[in-house]
Design a protein around this nucleic acid. Structure first.
Lengths: 342, 342
DNA sequence: TTGTAAGCGTTATCAA
DNA sequence: TTGATAACGCTTACAA
């Protein structure tokens, strides 16, 4: 077995409880013994056993991360490594480790989350997505376990701490950016309509269209799962309309990349023939050709704030639910240009 | 407190140990009591407490994942979500959960790993990269803790279970692919030369060059950190040579994407003016324009095998170290073409 | 086939 | 300021 608190106690000639106090940095312990114990720890190479500690403590110093199921293609989105980096940064500052459940189906994910919570593997959970009518979120709420959501909860917003951008306004701004560039036929390409973020961005788009006095056209709004089979068809149809759009608001950089490809295959030039603006500003948007004008939503920051709010909630359970809004900003690159009216 | 084994025992009118046996599916327990206990568990909504179990068991049912430090830009590489997906799949089959350390510096990572191991947070570790002279790997070896490496260990290969592609041959094949397409001026663009995989691929490239009777030129070999400041310069220089290459072997799809961009800015057309072949075959290689001819290294599979070997090692500690070689295959797309000799 | 009881490595309460 | 000692929730000899 590894070296335990007892070994340290023996070597330092104190009781185990004293060693425990030294670890916890209990103020009422003499500097002398503190030093002696610390030396003993160093000498033996002592490391506290987390399981034992958790058991006694009722706390794990671990945060659970719930991603979309890995069967889902969004799993591939660079959004995730980046939020995790943010979460991780804050977690690390507070000596929390990260724990992940995974699963290839919604059911597996659900079971994983239940296990994680009921099995007391973690002190709190960050839900990395928000979808309409999500069992997991419902469960989290009912279980009364500390958790925060990245994104906007579909219901019970008031009761759930969540970290989000103002996606409505962001989409409105993005759309208006195209409008300012003289575009008046603007399409919207959304991702999974089950995601609240998709809905929010669509609403923002609609608002901008309406506010500018343009007519909202159903056939300008498509949803594609570009990673799936046949994902290109939606774009094909869109561009085959009698009056195809000259500007596109796309809800995700990765989708925009796919669209860039489809367009190039149709021999439609970006930004000359059509302007494309998208969201997230992942590193790819910079290295694609053309580089993408994208709304930077500060992914890292979302993660960082999420961990921050969660840790607060863990430490002070009475903390009121709150909404943290992370700012966004439009980053202009080369996928948009003023419409050529000739 | 949550419902414990005692509560279940009481309700089912048996001893706690019996409940424990039912959980462990101990064969010598009567079907009758087994059923009774199971009903009690269901009725109370019992879930075993992992900490308690780990403490008694000396096992955590968790696998630790060690990524490069998140300060490092490779963190962004879609390689990671994909290996993790693979690890996760196998882990899940065996009811292992995933645990992640993170940190922004090598030191932080190191401390995290030590904590994870000494604190008995995990039963084994998957190291997701292999670099020349890595402290963490050295530590893992010395600590005699179950671990596997994805990639080829820099030293002590015989003693370390690792999962890898034959990167030497893969690079040789990739280079020969260009040679077959009549290219005779072929450059090599590598990533971090501290990574063993970079070295292996470079050697494979050299071998192919030499085997084909082409002359190896120092100035055709560059290493770039394309995500870093000034990453484009290496390519710029390469293409400004008096006799610039007409083919490029690039060690990573993401780098290849960056190169595609740099080339397009220099008004050099791919594949017309220059052919590019890269590695990893991440989803992006398909949706880039042009799509990338890439060596598929079966990332998911790497992860899956890694978890498999690790779990075996955890269960049977005497297991001999072994090397698992995951096959690769060249996926032809549109970034390469036969050299136009006119 | 089942129960009793010790032990896993901590923390925390109560005395001293 | 420190030491005994009882939890924490589970597993596992050993007994029955």
């Amino acid at each position: 077995m590894a070296v335990t608190i007892k070994d340290v106690a023996k070597l330092a000639n104190v009781a185990p409880s004293t060693v425990s106090r030294v670890i916890a940095n209990n103020p009422r312990i003499s500097e002398a013994t503190k030093k002696r114990v610390k030396e003993a720890m160093k000498e033996l190479g002592y490391h506290p056993n987390f399981s034992a500690r958790s058991l006694a403590n009722q706390n794990t110093q671990a945060i659970g991360i719930v991603m979309p199921s890995s069967g889902n293609s969004v799993f591939q989105n660079p959004f995730f490594p980046e939020v995790i980096r943010g979460i991780s940064a804050k977690a690390h500052e507070n000596k929390y480790a990260l724990y992940m459940t995974t699963g290839t189906s919604e059911q597996e994910m659900y079971d994983g989350v239940v296990d994680m919570i009921q099995g007391r593997r973690v002190d709190g959970i960050v839900l990395l997505y928000s979808r309409v009518d999500d069992r997991i979120m419902t469960y989290l709420q009912e279980s009364n376990f500390p958790f925060v959501v990245i994104g906007k909860p579909f219901r019970n917003i008031e009761d759930i701490t969540h970290i989000d951008n103002d996606n409505f306004r962001a989409a409105q701004d993005a759309t208006e950016h195209l409008i300012q560039q003289q575009h008046d036929r603007i399409g919207f390409v959304g991702g999974d309509r089950g995601l609240v973020v998709t809905v929010d961005r669509l609403l923002g788009y609609e608002k901008a269209i309406q506010k500018a006095g343009l007519t909202y056209r159903d056939d300008y709004v498509v949803h594609e799962e570009f990673l799936e089979e046949g994902g290109q068809e939606a774009i094909n149809e869109l561009m085959s309309l009698e009056e195809p759009p000259t500007g596109l608001v796309v809800t995700d950089d990765l989708m925009a990349l796919g669209i860039l490809k489809t367009l190039s295959e149709m021999d439609i030039k970006v930004p000359d023939d059509i302007s494309v603006i998208s969201f997230n500003n992942v590193m790819l948007s910079e290295i694609s050709t053309p580089s993408l004008t994208s709304v930077c939503i500060n992914i890292f920051w979302l993660g960082y704030e999420a961990a921050d709010s969660l840790i607060e909630k863990i430490k002070v359970p009475e903390t009121k639910p709150k909404r943290v809004t992370v700012p966004y900003r439009l980053v202009e690159r080369n996928s948009c240009q003023t419409r050529q009216t000739n």
